[in-house]
């Protein structure tokens, strides 16, 4: 008996529960025959979600998730991931390099995709706590204490601006697609009311998405995987703009634009 049996199981072969191409037989995708069951019958976003979670969602839910992709990928090159795309265009990389590098940048704790993990985790935790009997006000007080007295609840408060124009847009999508407000989203609104009263702060789009998708039965990790290329469209747009202008034309800096605050000039020897 050795200690590497677990790896021997995979040695010289591939085992996948997601699918694959059997030459001459067809392509399987999470239990579906890709050409028979999916192509032309399901939307691209349905298949994206299928591949990320192993479960095929309804077209309505996939449409909702597609809409939020639009909300979270706008072509303003001041947004951090988009700026990577703009700089890449200015530096004349390829579009694929620029777009994927922008997505990598959005794998950030501060914005983009990773906060969705905390957002879903937060609202699901909040629901459990409040179901146990704690009041929303006390819950908020406890959370604020954890953050040194600041109301930094995941899914609430937005950097740079107060309020979030994406929420009413998504509320309309939710209504148009005939989704009802579930227990997590309902709680998210109630927390917003209290937070606004006490701290003049509101829900952000992360909070809305996290609560809505919690109601649809997704875990935090599943949401993160579904949205793994969330910002790509805006990044490509910013790349395209600067790629069509002069080389080095995005945010060019003169040497005098940089403030040097380091060591005085010195010599090695």
């Amino acid at each position: 008996m050795n200690n590497y049996q677990d790896w021997e199981h995979y040695h010289g072969c591939i085992v996948s529960a997601r699918g694959g191409w059997k030459i001459g037989e067809g392509v399987q995708c999470c239990g579906y025959d890709m050409m028979e069951d999916l192509v032309g019958k399901k939307t691209y976003m349905q298949v994206v979600i299928l591949n990320a979670t192993g479960r095929l969602p309804s077209k309505e839910l996939a449409d909702w998730i597609e809409a939020i992709h639009i909300c979270l990928s706008w072509p303003d090159p001041r947004i951090w991931c988009n700026r990577i795309g703009a700089l890449a265009g200015s530096a004349r990389t390829t579009a694929v390099a620029a777009s994927t590098l922008g997505v990598l940048a959005a794998d950030s704790k501060s914005y983009g995709i990773k906060p969705l993990i905390s957002g879903v985790g937060f609202i699901q935790y909040a629901y459990k706590e409040i179901t146990k009997g704690i009041s929303i006000d006390d819950f908020i007080t406890n959370e604020v204490k954890k953050n040194g007295g600041k109301p930094y609840l995941m899914g609430y408060i937005r950097p740079i601006a107060k309020g979030d124009e994406r929420i009413p847009a998504m509320e309309k999508v939710t209504k148009d697609l005939n989704f009802t407000i579930g227990k997590h989203l309902s709680l998210a609104y109630k927390i917003e009311e209290h937070l606004n009263k006490r701290f003049d702060e509101t829900m952000n789009v992360n909070g809305y998405v996290s609560a809505f998708l919690s109601d649809q039965g997704y875990s935090a990790e599943e949401v993160y995987r579904i949205f793994s290329s969330l910002v790509i469209s805006g990044v490509t747009a910013c790349y395209t703009d600067t790629r069509e202008r002069i080389k080095g034309g995005f945010s060019p800096l003169k040497t005098s634009d940089v403030t040097y605050t380091g060591k005085a000039l010195r010599t090695v020897k």
Partner: peptide
């Protein structure tokens, strides 16, 4: 049910207008 607080206002945060570095000095 919908969010009543969707008006968007700038927080007026002050962003840096210059890059600052201890590493590189160029002339």
């Amino acid at each position: 049910m919908k969010s009543s607080f969707s008006d968007v206002k700038s927080r007026g945060e002050q962003f840096s207008v210059k890059i600052e570095t201890k590493i590189t000095l160029e002339q």
